[in-house]
Design a protein around this nucleic acid. Structure first.
Lengths: 227, 227
DNA sequence: TTACGATCCGGACCGAGGTCCGTTTAATTT
DNA sequence: AAATTAAACGGACCTCGGTCCGGATCGTAA
């Protein structure tokens, strides 16, 4: 498991250990302790049923139709159980996205080049952005609905993993820049809300966004003019 | 009035005319029609009392204490009146920010250089970012609380005004780039949620963010290397 | 197999955002 | 001044996210 996304490990009796939270995060909690708390049999069963029910509701009524009560009812489970398992609505929605996100994460961490290791950093950065754009384009609706409140947005494991990756590549590409800030800037370009605005509300084609990403990476990683 | 921010003009019987919504927005609805719908006397009075009450609640209990019912009660007004006037909670919160935002807007539209007209575009861009960072730093909490849902975030008048300004400067600075996308990228750096994360959760000093902005502007507007 | 404690379940309950509609009131017309 | 009408008012009402805790269930150890 690459990172924990549901609340199974974040709620009592397994409270997540406090993380540093500074500008240089511990990349990804990778293979490090307490991954699968090994739910009790009934809990695991209910978790699966809940995710299944939620996915069905999304398919039928869109993300807006995913009401905590509706999910509970569809899974034939008490409402409290949903919250116990996923913490809140955002947690449930993120759990739905979890599978794809982990595939993506595996791809850029250890997949084939140029997305994975082996290619020069700038090229990996380019590939990363295009892959992220594609992922955002699929189930955009779900990604928007799963957006956490502003002060948690940057603390969510998937986001941290992506950020850490971009940061690493940026450090290789432009070693003497303020890579933390540049990484956040690049991440901003990939924000689902922005993708949604540009593609759905401004009718920009994805190719333009991809080209824009290439251009942005080029500008950000370019050697500075002496002037 | 530079732009309409409350719902007075956006709710029946004065529905806002549909706007184009494409990538090249009509800068700012500037002095153009239907600015002050001239509320009825009682409505105007209640609006003032509501804003007053809301501001008091923010001062006393923080943004989280601004409950629609609490505001209504404090203003001695029915709950429905609050919604009629401001549309929703976000609308009310944005109305609270409106005054300062308009001052800012006036400053970069027609104030003294380098923020206002007169300085070269790159210099104005630098000044704009620093001013925006300062504005975000003041009442960050309110700005976070006033963040609209993802699919409205880019349609809110203040945001459009800022975006339009950055876009214009960028077009002057780098005429043959995809300035729409670059402008959105720069705007992302100034997002309240990001400022909050960097300053409050990562403990970065504001000076670093300002320096980062200067660097970002330099990279984005730099002449491209022939390589 | 029984007993026991940790974990989980369920649904009543609460608070807050948002809607609705019958009533009231301000502006305008006659 | 009276009548008229568009707009504003108010608060009951609904939905939904989130909490709580008594009771049921699972895993384990004897």
């Amino acid at each position: 498991m690459l990172y924990a996304v549901d609340m199974s490990t974040a709620l009592p009796p397994c409270p997540q250990p406090e993380e540093p939270l500074d500008g240089t995060p511990v990349l990804v909690p990778f293979g490090t302790g307490a991954e699968e708390p090994c739910l009790r049999a009934d809990a695991a069963r209910n978790r699966a049923r809940l995710l299944d029910a939620a996915a069905r509701l999304v398919a039928e009524h869109g993300a807006a139709g995913v009401t905590m009560e509706a999910v509970a009812a569809a899974a034939k489970v008490g409402k409290g159980t949903v919250f116990r398992r996923f913490g809140d609505r955002t947690g449930l929605l993120m759990a739905l996205l979890d599978h794809e996100e982990k595939k993506f994460q595996a791809a850029f961490l250890s997949g084939p080049a140029p997305l994975g290791p082996g290619a020069p950093p700038v090229e990996r950065l380019r590939a990363f952005g295009c892959a992220a754009l594609r992922r955002a384009a699929d189930d955009l609706e779900l990604q928007l609905a799963a957006e956490p409140c502003p002060d948690r947005r940057f603390l969510v494991p998937p986001r941290r993993a992506r950020y850490g990756h971009v940061l690493m590549l940026l450090r290789q590409a432009v070693p003497d820049a303020d890579c933390e800030l540049l990484a956040q800037t690049l991440m901003g370009y990939l924000e689902p809300a922005l993708i949604h605005h540009l593609t759905r509300q401004c009718n920009m084609p994805m190719e333009r966004l991809q080209h824009g990403w290439h251009d942005l990476v080029a500008r950000v990683t370019a050697a500075r003019q002496p002037a």
